[in-house]
Amino acid sequence: MARPVTLCTLQWGDLPLEVVCEKAKSFGFDGVELGLPSHLDVRRTDPEYYQGIKAMLDKHGLKLFCISNHLIGQAICDNIDQRHKSILPDCIWGDGDPEGIRQRAAEYMIQAARAAKMLGLNIVAGFTGSSIWQWLYSFPPVSDEMINEGYADFARRFIPVLDAFQELGVRFALEVHPSEIAFDTYSARKALEVVNYHPAFGFNYDPSHLGYQSVDYVDFINQFSDRIFHVHMKDVYWSDTPKQIGVFGGHSTFGDARRFWNFRSLGRGKIQFEEIIRALNDIGYQGPLSVEWEDSRMDREHGARESCAFVKQVDFEPSAHAFDACFEK
């Protein structure tokens, strides 16, 4: 049986969950990936609340495999400033004290794991943030000690979170992404090392964030075959010729046609999804393929519908036997 195709609701946070469920079903999706904090209040501890969420999904014939805590997870390790106020709920921002925000964000991440358990799930995807992302380009020169301290800060803050996840039987899937502690294969390996290959720590695989960086996004699957906990299907286009705005984005907004790269609806960018499906089959990944739809120059309903159809068309089951086995008598 082909893998279920789900819709990540992060980009639909302006709509009530019931409306998103109705749309997801009409677009052809098998389930949803609930994005926090818009579509799930993980601070709730009453079983009736979670039963109500499951009943709503059942009503629309949708499955749930994962919840996502990207926005609040970003604040756990980041250097906090006014940008974060625009994405954090008041319960996390509080009085704006950076360390208080980080600690509340970490506790919220643990609450997300508890909520996942209440929903019968074992995966929470999300971000970690990074105290050293601003040193990506090493000038003035950045010392190894400065980078190592950034990873040590990540470990100090996240290992207690991961320990709590493990106690609950839930795993955290970091979306490898610019502005996170892991943003390519090398930094993902370093993140794994500093948390001592914690069994609750792995990755939410999203090829779009690797492709335009010229990172081998298929090899990433092979490198971390036992750590791919969840998969986002998202496409990106990058130019074959020089552009006015380079790979760093030039302080432009997403969708600006002058950029070297932009996210695009699935099948309209440069990601080779055929190779991704084959690699996922090779490692035995049987989880959902979750469409995180982003294309600033396309209507999102049109994009979600065509992306769902695209994923269902490109996915296929692995062979149960070698093709030439039938040659034998």
Rank of each mutant, 00 (worst) to 15 (best):
H198R: 02
A320Y: 14
R264K: 14
Q51N: 04
T241D: 15
K329F: 13
I221H: 02
A325Q: 14
G120N: 13
A257N: 02
D153Y: 10
S290C: 11
R259A: 05
A105M: 08
L280K: 06
G287K: 06
V218W: 11
A309N: 05
G287M: 09
G255T: 11
D58M: 07
L7Q: 09
A115C: 07
L280C: 04
Q213D: 01
A112C: 12
Y197W: 15
H70A: 06
A320N: 08
S86N: 11
P141Y: 08
G250Q: 12
V247W: 14
L121W: 02
C326R: 13
D282I: 00
T128Q: 06
G28L: 14
F154A: 05
G255I: 15
L192M: 12
T128Y: 03
M233I: 11
N281F: 13
G303T: 08
G267E: 01
F229S: 04
A105S: 13
H198C: 03
L15T: 08
R43C: 05
Q213A: 10
A55H: 00
V194I: 09
E317A: 11
Q103M: 15
Q272S: 09
A112F: 02
V311H: 11
Q82K: 08
H39W: 13
E22H: 06
K85S: 06
H70D: 06
A257Y: 01
D58Y: 09
E33T: 14
I245Y: 14
G255R: 15
D58R: 15
